[in-house]
Design a binder for these strands. Structure first.
Lengths: 254, 254
DNA sequence: GAGTGGTCTAGACCACTGC
DNA sequence: CAGTGGTCTAGACCACTCG
């Protein structure tokens, strides 16, 4: 008689139950738990497919399908002949994963992040809603300027959960040369999985205009982003003002 | 002795040759050819996996992997228990596939497209470059207004390849109630596969401001889109001006 | 019940990496 | 060379849809 493998890990085995999910998805969430718990850290290799298959008592094909989905979601990166690695924002190729800004002229431009301010605060109603915390809970606010070819293009105001990013200060930010998300990853163990952006056109207020070197009232792109870590937990809310004189937001639809 | 199935369709069988591709990808491109040639039209069902496996003399798993990729690229839609269907822009759920505009307040709003003008023209240098045609070749220009809840939100200027959309006129546009892309599909047999958008913030000029009911100089989102049909052939270039007072461009990053 | 896509397995071989 | 991911196969059974 056949053993119904898909039920091995099920709490509720009823096929029509809402908690039902195929075996490969259960394996996937087990592996994701490993990422979440820090068993395998960003940039590290995870066990081979055959090892995982043995550990979880399933066939290699099932592990493979689980990892397929994780690779599609950018949680891991496969490298033929080498192994499967936990995705990391420290990889230079990941720099533009969340920053969809390209020069109008094309080509590559060197970029630099200039932290301006960083202070502790209590969440107001808006920040609390975005970060799914209570009003008054501690947050950290960062203001920074992003330059391309030494010219200012983006000014960001970033709101972070205070409990998650405790200890973040201007000194840390100024020391860090790579991307913010790689800082979050290495220093705080917080990996951003996905993000939502809401884009509008606004007129530049005086302080932003001065920072970006444009006249007050110039049209700017307002890009609001909520970034989520494991478990769809929002940990960052930022609002960026993009000067689109020489750059534009690039998006691929399919 | 084993028969090397992956080479069955190969022109060049050398494994390191640049033209090498795995069997499932060759099957995929054969099926895509069927879509391209109109053997199966948008909305129609394609043969079952086992039928295709038999036709192409491969295992069902290989066909499955081919179709997996096509489903991931939104070329087809799988429906368990029914079959696999050619994706179509006529499906109401596909309406917002290329239009990433959502109300700030959330919820659903009825939308309506109001064609304003439509004329034949010769491609200028910019349109020619975007549509990858020669300067002076025929194009069709459409201007239209997009309303949500009976209020104007987007004004579009659309440049179409004249050879592909011959016969398009204001009368046809006004008769058509569904989305433009479903018109292109049904009337001209042109299916949009993917698109690129470049977004910037601009100040409203007088005519656009009047159409959108905002003051001249107000910040607007400028969304330039190039849409591609099979073979990455660009057939549409459009520039939309979005009023983001009550709506915003929504983008999901991962 | 027949037919579809969806899941799972077991085993083979290929392609790439690094020792 | 051994070990990894990548491809392909063949066969089983599950879940869903429809007549």
């Amino acid at each position: 008689m056949r053993f119904y493998a898909r039920m091995r890990f099920m709490v509720q085995a009823s096929p029509t139950s809402p908690t039902f999910s195929p075996l490969y998805r259960q394996i996937k969430s087990l592996i994701v738990q490993g990422l979440e718990s820090g068993e395998w850290r960003p940039g590290e290799i995870i066990p081979s497919e055959s090892e995982l298959a043995e550990r979880f008592n399933v066939s290699q094909g099932t592990v493979r399908k689980a990892i397929d989905e994780m690779a599609a979601e950018n949680l891991v990166v496969r490298k033929q002949g080498k192994g499967t690695f936990v995705a990391t924002h420290s990889d230079p190729r990941a720099f533009f994963r969340f920053l969809r800004l390209v020069p109008v002229a094309g080509g590559f431009e060197p970029s630099e992040s200039k932290p301006l301010e960083c202070w502790r605060a209590k969440a107001g109603p808006e920040a609390a809603r975005m970060l799914q915390i209570n009003i008054g809970e501690p947050i950290i606010v960062v203001r920074r300027l992003l330059q391309f070819s030494a010219k200012p293009v983006v000014v960001d105001e970033i709101y972070l959960r205070g409990d998650v990013f405790a200890g973040l200060g201007l000194d840390v930010l100024k020391d860090w040369q790579a991307s913010l998300y790689s800082l979050f990853e290495t220093r705080f163990g917080v990996r951003m999985i996905r993000a939502e952006e809401r884009i509008r056109a606004v007129a530049a207020d005086r302080p932003s205009a001065e920072l970006l070197g444009v006249t007050e009232g110039s049209p700017l792109l307002s890009v609001e982003r909520i970034s989520f870590t494991y478990g769809d937990k929002p940990v960052e809310w930022r609002r960026g003002l993009y000067c689109t004189a020489n750059h534009c937001y690039f998006n691929e639809l399919s």
